[in-house]
Computed example of a mutant assay.
Amino acid sequence: MDIRYSTHAADYPAYDTATLRARYLIDGVFAPGAIRMTYCHDDRMVVAGLMPVGEPLRPEGGAMFGGLGFFDRREAGIFVIAGAGRIIVDGTAYDLVEADALYIGKGAKDVAFESPDPANPAKFYLVSVPAHRACPTRAIRKADARTLELGTVRDANKRQLRQYLHPDVIETCQLCMGQTDLYEGSVWNTYPCHTHERRMEAYLYFGLGEDGRVFHYMGKPDETRHLVLANEQAVISPSWSIHMGSGTRNYSFIWAMAGENQEFTDMDMVKPQDLR
């Protein structure tokens, strides 16, 4: 497990590129037959990639979780970004295809991830946060998500945003997740940008191809930096940081938020003229 400690907004302007990447970039999210897990001290969020090719994969607890099982005090959202997979939660099987999601509530005991076709293994993207109450485990299909059409061709940010783990779709304790797909010819996400001091966020960028890149912008509005992300890399966005991106082509990303509330529109907008 990779562990990332919280960083102070006053410290990050001194970071060079290598330090920025070490603090906020999550590389190698997916590996065949493995669980790749990153523990973020920001809101105790866990970001993980699971890619079963033989035996089922089971997230385990341990010392980082107080010696408890992984789901004893946690909830999680899982998206399939490639292939088709099966998740078995305490004996109930959920078959998922690309762009489907599963919410697992606090208290699940035996959770296994499988790829029915090992030659075309599923890529499961998991985000987990602490939960103080149990909510029902539920599959959310692409058609079940709350879909919003945003942006314009003129501004190169025409995109479809789908809310999966959201109060208008399902009940969760604190976790909110969704997927945004940019249309061909659009490259900007989350612009004009914002912060939300009450929640941190993580992004997984994918659909870029081998040579595509996303320039992910972060930092205080008057002290911005950027990270260059490749396909299937993730980034941690602290609550004090803006988060927006521009790509060399259109792409998709999964966003996950946790913190003080679940109000999707609870954000502090930043005027473009105030960015530095």
Rank of each mutant, 00 (worst) to 15 (best):
A101C: 04
D72W: 09
F71E: 00
V53Q: 07
K106N: 10
V111M: 08
V129G: 11
L148Q: 14
I26H: 04
R21E: 15
L68F: 12
P130W: 02
A145H: 12
R133W: 12
G107C: 01
G83C: 04
L20P: 11
L25W: 03
I87L: 06
Y94L: 02
V129S: 11
A99Y: 11
S115F: 12
F70K: 07
F71L: 01
T92H: 12
I35H: 04
M64D: 13
R138P: 05
R73H: 15
L150H: 11
G62L: 04
V29W: 12
V46A: 00
R86D: 03
G91V: 02
R74D: 04
P32T: 09
K123M: 10
L25G: 05
D117Q: 11
V46R: 11
A82E: 07
G49D: 10
A63Q: 06
I87D: 06
F70L: 03
V80S: 00
V89R: 04
R74Q: 06
R21W: 09
V129L: 00
A63K: 12
R146N: 15
A34D: 13
G107Q: 03
A101V: 09
K142A: 15
I88W: 00
A84E: 12
F71I: 05
E60G: 11
P121L: 10
E149Y: 15
A139G: 10
V97W: 09
P118I: 08
L148C: 01
I88K: 11
K106G: 05
Y103P: 03
P118S: 15
G91W: 02
P130F: 04
I88Q: 15
F70W: 03
P130I: 10
V127E: 07
R36A: 13
T38S: 12
T147P: 14
V80I: 08
A99F: 05
R44L: 15
L102Q: 03
N120Q: 14
A22S: 14
Y103R: 08
A93Y: 00
V53I: 12
E149P: 15
A131S: 11
E75K: 10
L20Q: 12
R138K: 13
L96N: 05
G67C: 13
L150N: 10
L150D: 13
A108N: 04
A48M: 12
A22P: 02
K109N: 13
F30M: 07
D72V: 07
P136M: 03
A22G: 09
I35K: 02
G28I: 02
T147N: 11
A22H: 07
E75H: 06
G151N: 15
C135D: 00
A31E: 14
I78V: 15
E60K: 09
M51W: 02
D144C: 08
I81R: 11
A63N: 07
G105K: 06
V47E: 05
L126A: 13
T137I: 01
F70N: 00
A63V: 15
C40E: 12
A134I: 10
P118Y: 11
H41G: 03
M51H: 05
G49T: 03
F71M: 01
L102G: 04
R138M: 14
V111C: 05
P121G: 07
A139F: 10
V97M: 12
F79R: 03
I104W: 00
